[in-house]
């Protein structure tokens, strides 16, 4: 069973995301801040990371930079979650090292299919 790390400060959104992932057959970890998220990613080596870009302590982009510059490097796929109206560029996020990009409000079925594609479960 694969494990996903959800870095998300809002509890409701975290519950939504973890419940969705569990129903799809994944185990989940949760980090409510950017710093905790980066730490957990490096220490626990999840199979994928769902990263909210707006976090209370450090910016999601900063979390991404920490992960990519750590010893785990590019080995773990990261899916960024952001709001459309607040979006920075999809391209900007991809260029910074994200593997996929999800807009809020999320479409549950679509999130799962995007995830499966990223981690290579479906082509």
């Amino acid at each position: 069973m694969r494990t996903g790390l959800v870095i998300e400060d809002n509890e409701n959104n975290m519950v939504l995301m973890t419940r969705l992932l569990e129903k799809a057959g994944y185990r989940t970890l949760w980090a409510p801040t950017g710093m905790q998220g980066a730490e957990m990613a490096i220490k626990q080596r999840p199979d994928f990371i769902i990263l909210d870009i707006q976090l209370p302590d450090i910016d999601g982009m900063e979390v991404l930079r920490k992960i990519r510059t750590s010893e785990i490097g590019n080995t773990i796929p990261v899916i960024a979650v952001t709001s459309f109206a607040m979006a920075g560029d999809k391209e900007r996020l991809l260029a910074a090292g994200c593997d996929e990009y999800i807009e809020k409000p999320i479409d549950p079925r679509r999130v799962i299919s995007q995830l499966k594609r990223v981690i290579g479960e479906i082509p």
Binding site: N10, N13, P105, I106
Partner: peptide, 12 residues
């Protein structure tokens, strides 16, 4: 937006 996103997500 954050709570709205939750509402939309859960109902969805």
């Amino acid at each position: 937006r954050t709570p709205l996103n939750s509402i939309i997500g859960f109902t969805g």
